[in-house]
Structures are given as structure tokens and as C-alpha cells.
Design a protein around this nucleic acid. Structure first.
Lengths: 226, 226
DNA sequence: TAGATTGTTAATCGATTAACAATC
DNA sequence: TAGATTGTTAATCGATTAACAATC
């Protein structure tokens, strides 16, 4: 009933769901595989396969009911209810995430921050900021499964050791450090610097391609790119 | 000489480079395809192919020279020098990015922020925060190619229209809005909420799998997951 | 020389799409 | 009914890996 999903499939199901929530809020009731395919830039076959493989079926000629489709996707993805997270490292990015997701918005609830800087530790705040040493205890009592890691790169490995001894099962790693997943804890990298770099690279490449297309067909140095 | 790269290839080349910079800083001089393969979790064949396809060659038995490898990758990726960006939308996340990347750290230089809120506009600050209406003029005179979009989701489409009329060629989209790339401007999504959601989903799935493995072999409801 | 690593081809693998019968 | 859309199979495509000759 629950086939093992690749990251790509999780990504697509999550995007289907996001698109469907929008359609629903616009008052739409039904959707066709074609519509979802257009929205994601994939083929309609793939949409139907993605859904069918998870036991989600439409009706021939009538498409899919958005309401039930969202329900089923939420179930399959396991993202019903508030997703509770803690933020480890309350610097610029960490604090921003606490403020953004501290308000139970977007289905996510950042319930606490952790840091080593005594100056910013404040257990009495609406969203408490605690000492990292209390992490294991806190996540155990509060049943937290997922943490967002925003500490300085140098500190990442050490902090990650502490995370591994806790009940945390998933880490979104905002640091540039290479942290490995293990059987107990899944680490997902999200390196903003690298994303910016990749973007520059893709932009530069598309510029090169344009130049190549605009340029006359004549052979030039290094034109043997085949 | 410059084959068209898929996003996956760009991602890998960028990661090779990042790993190599670390090795270099540790005093390493040579690296084998095996090493890079281990670091990224791919095969050594793929590493050699990735490099070879871009005219980067090692020596049999001697591996690759890290120094020249980094140079060549930097060149191929087009990420030499400071990468100048502007940040559009200076809320929690936007401000955090300005502060993090405003200091020419990490090879990235956030040179200005843009917002519509008159209260936070401050053209005299070290990193000026300007009115969004000045965006086109600013990026034209300062030769900015890439922007990071951190406005509220509702505002994203409108702001993106303004971005499209500017010289901006690449946008890192932190909003949840679905913004399309076009021939002129490449939009790269980075939806933190969705990343957190995906992480929860992957964690949940790995938990399910464990339960399935631990559980006795006996047939149960929904055990026909094949 | 013997051993190790690259460069490159052929094989494999998985993901995606095309196509079409089933059917609403 | 005719037309449209699903569900599903077979075909395609691209990416990755295995394997090995070349060679340092």
C-alpha cells in the first residue's frame, strides 16, 4: 500500500498537493491529470502513475476530486496536523525561521530555539530559546522529530553529535557542513550559498547558449561542443 | 567545450568544488575519483565522466590535482569572483539573508535590499534598503544579474512582473508562489516550508519501513506492498 | 615490473512518456 | 452515441554504473 518513494516522487506529490490547495481555495472541485501535468511541467501519464501507485484513483472522463485528492495526498505524505520543529542555532537565519514559523502558520510550528550564547537564551519567551544542552531532554518530553540546523559551519559537526543522541529523526541542514544521514537520523541539506551559486551558473549557461545561438554559424575556437 | 549541463550535473560539480575547497584547506594536494565518489555517494565512474565531459583530466595512477581541479570547476561553473545579489523583500528571511551575505562572505555579496515598507527603507545604510520601484534602475546601473525573492506570497506575482522588466536574469524564489521561468529570467524555487514538509514525509516513511522490518513476517492488513 | 587509477565503452538501471484499450 | 479521460502496458529516454584496456 505504501510503496517506497524516491525523493523525486515525494517532491512531486508535495507539489501536487500545494497546487491542489490553491485550486481548492479558488473554488475548483475537479482536476484532470493534464492540469497537474501542466502545473509541474511533466507528462499527464506521470501524474496518473504517481497517483495510481499510491492507490489514488480518478474516474474516467471525470478526472479527480480535489477535496479527496488533497486528503489522500496528505495521508500518503504523512503531513496532516501541525508539523512541530525546533530550530538549533538562533543567528540571523535561525531567528528568522523561528519568527516565520513560530506562529503555527503554513502548517508548521517552530516550538523552540536552541543556542549556546547565554545572551540570547530566554526560556520564558513565547517561543523559548534554550541552551543546546537541554536539547535531548526537550525533544524527548515534547515529542519532537525534526530539527532545523542553523549553527555556524564550524559548530555543525559537534552539534550534530548531540542531535544524534537525541530522538530527532530528521534534520534540515542549513549549514554548509557535510553531515551524513544514518539509520537513525535523516539529514537533508539546504545550502543557501550553494543554491545561489547554482543559480549563477545556470544563468551564465543560458547566457552562453544565447550567445551561441545569436552568433553566426561559422566555426570558432572551442566550437566543437558535440 | 561547454556541454549543456542538467541541473543534476551543476549540482554535482558544485558539490565537488565545495568538497575540494575543504580538502585544499586541509593541505591535501591530490584527489582520486574514488574520494569524490565517496563524498557524494556516487560511483567513481560518474565522477570521472562528469569531469572528463568538461575537459578536466587527471593522470592515470596519479589522480587529479586539487588546485587545478578547483580552478577548472570554478571556470566551468562560472562562479569566479564575488557573486553580487540583491534581496527583494526585507522581512524576517530577507533581512537575515542581507545580514548573512552582506559581508562579502562565502563568495557572495548582497549589495542591496528592496521593500515597499517606507519604515524600513534606508538608502544610507551600509547595505541600502531601497524602494522596490527603484529596482530596475539600480540593477541596471550596478549590473546585477541575480535576485533573491523573499516577499510575502501574495506579493510575489506582482513583484515578479517588475523583476521581469529589469535586467535580472535569475531569481531564487523563497516564496511559496509558483513563478515560471521564461527565456529571459530563470526562476529557481527554494520553498523552505515544502522542504520541511518533505523532510517530515521522508522521516515518516523511514519509520514505517522500520516498523515493517521489525514486525513479524505474518500477513497483515495492507502488507502487500509490492 | 607490478599495481593502481584514469578514460571510455558497453551494459544496466530507473524514470518518464507515448499510446491505446477501457469506460464513464 | 460520440467524445474525453483514466489506467496501464510497452517503448523510449537519459542517467548511472560496471568493466576493462590504456598507461603512469
Amino acid at each position: 500500500m505504501q510503496p517506497i518513494m524516491s525523493k523525486d516522487v515525494v517532491e512531486r506529490l508535495s507539489r501536487y498537493r500545494s497546487v491542489l490547495l490553491r485550486l481548492k481555495s479558488l473554488g475548483f472541485v475537479r482536476v484532470f491529470s493534464d492540469n497537474l501535468a501542466d502545473a509541474l511541467g511533466v507528462s499527464a501519464s506521470l501524474v496518473r502513475k504517481d497517483l495510481g501507485l499510491h492507490g489514488i484513483h480518478g474516474v474516467k472522463r471525470g478526472g479527480y476530486n480535489i477535496e479527496t485528492l488533497v486528503e489522500r495526498l496528505t495521508e500518503v505524505l504523512g503531513v496532516s496536523g501541525m508539523l512541530k520543529i525546533v530550530v538549533i542555532g538562533c543567528g540571523h537565519i535561525g531567528s528568522a525561521l523561528l519568527r516565520t514559523y513560530g506562529g503555527k502558520r503554513y502548517g508548521i510550528n517552530a516550538v523552540a530555539g536552541f543556542d549556546i550564547n547565554a545572551q540570547i537564551i530566554n526560556p520564558m519567551a513565547a517561543i523559548p530559546i534554550l541552551d543546546v544542552h537541554e536539547l535531548a531532554t526537550y525533544v524527548a518530553t515534547q515529542a519532537i522529530d525534526v530539527a532545523v540546523l542553523c549553527v555556524p559551519e564550524d559548530a555543525a559537526a559537534t552539534v550534530m553529535e548531540q542531535v544524534r543522541t537525541s530522538r530527532i529523526r530528521g534534520v534540515l541542514n542549513f549549514t554548509a557542513a557535510h553531515l551524513r544521514s544514518d539509520a537513525h537520523c535523516l539529514v537533508q541539506p539546504l545550502d543557501i550559498r550553494m543554491e545561489i551559486e547554482k543559480l549563477f551558473c545556470l544563468v551564465e549557461m543560458s547566457a552562453r547558449r544565447e550567445r551561441a545561438e545569436t552568433a553566426p554559424e561559422g566555426r570558432e575556437r572551442g566550437n566543437d561542443d558535440r
